[in-house]
Amino acid sequence: MDIRVQQAAFDLGGEASHFAANQQGQGAIVTFAGIVRDLGQGDLHAMEIEHYPGMTDKALTSIAEEAMKRWALGDVLIIHRFGHLAPQELIMMVATSSKHRKDAFEAAEFLMDYLKSRAPFWKREVTNKGAEWVAARDEDETALSRWGTAKKDPAG
């Protein structure tokens, strides 16, 4: 498992290649990357991502460990950035490997669903109108419920 929380940009292709080159015995690699989305009106200047340094690594590690338990995975990589990001910049990526593609695909979706609402990051969009915290979406919470025994949001 490789979990990285960092301010610096990362090279998606380089990370994916490096991950794929170390998966002896596996047959499938799935990667997902998230980028800063401009809302379409072209008025997004930046996205600022705050995190909870002590908790972030722990939360990501426990999410990755849960994925390793549920699916037959070779390995998991998670990179998540914080700080000031420009539109179209890479925010994060996950990569999973498995013998057959189903495990790698499902585990990558699981990781993303959990990252969205259980990893302590908070996004703020800076637009022409000022800066605003991004609200969590109900759909993100619903997405978690499909993983069955998923831990419920304790406060929600």
């Binding site: 002590g54 998540h80 925010i91 994060m92 993303m112 990252l115 990893a119 302590p120 908070w122 929600g156």
Partner: peptide, 12 residues
Amino acid sequence: REVAFFPPMTGG
């Protein structure tokens, strides 16, 4: 030792 309060998380 530590308690933290925050809004619902928006990672990913």
